[in-house]
Amino acid sequence: MSVATMPEHQVLLRIRGLTTVLNGKKVFDSLDMDVARGKITAIMGPSGTGKTTLLKHITGQVRGDAGEVCLDGQNVPALDRKKLYTLRERIGYMFQNSALLTDFDVFENVAFPLRRHTKLPEVLIRNIVLNKLQAVGLRGAARLYPGELSGGMVRRVALARAIVFDPMLILYDEPFVGLDPIALNQVLKLIRTLNHTLGLTSVLVAHELEAVKQVADQIFLVANGKVVAAGDPQHIADDGSPWTRQFFIGEMDGPVPFHYPAGDYAQALGFSEQSA
């Protein structure tokens, strides 16, 4: 599917012709995608389709075999280590499992990027960290350790850490997995509020269609190594393609087959020779 071309100044992330082969499997086959500045973009798709791998291309953890991943005008795969690390200081990343540093308490987890990259006085670090923790409602939990937090709280601490540098882009990998309705609503509200108040651009990978509909401005459906559908949450399911029908209605068989590729069943059971 071709991507509608947006004006250059509106695009923060532009992916063109991304082709990646991992362990002999073609994960992306000339994938194109434009992510608009200041918007919340959701990447959806069947399990194992490479959505998290796509995020890793944006952060430069994985490099494709061909194509461009241009973030704020810089082609990520072509950056050397120093430039890549400088770029990463402007990207916030929230892991599926939150990946908090278990040796540190909540305060030190959020302060970690500040301490490593700046020489700010302790008073200023304290104010910034408490400000971010207040934004996610966890200022009171500053001295707790990750092991003492609930799943929703861990997710919110990871969010506070991801925004501590006021990044231009924040990437969420499965932010809604395993959350109860209260925590889900809290995370949804935070993603929306932070994106609009801090002027961020957000890209999130998720499966929960209802949650994504509440928060995303744009959805890309990725399958078979390409973007197979793109549009706003209200209309993306209306294009009538078999991909959108199967994914958004949840049909068990379709372009994504129910059966993993295998040989002839009857032959595997030894019936074909007898019938012959």
Partner: peptide, 13 residues
């Protein structure tokens, strides 16, 4: 637990 990957993404080697 992805802590090393998290460090890399926070630009800490």
């Amino acid at each position: 637990t992805d802590q090393l990957a998290a460090m890399e993404l926070m630009a800490v080697d």
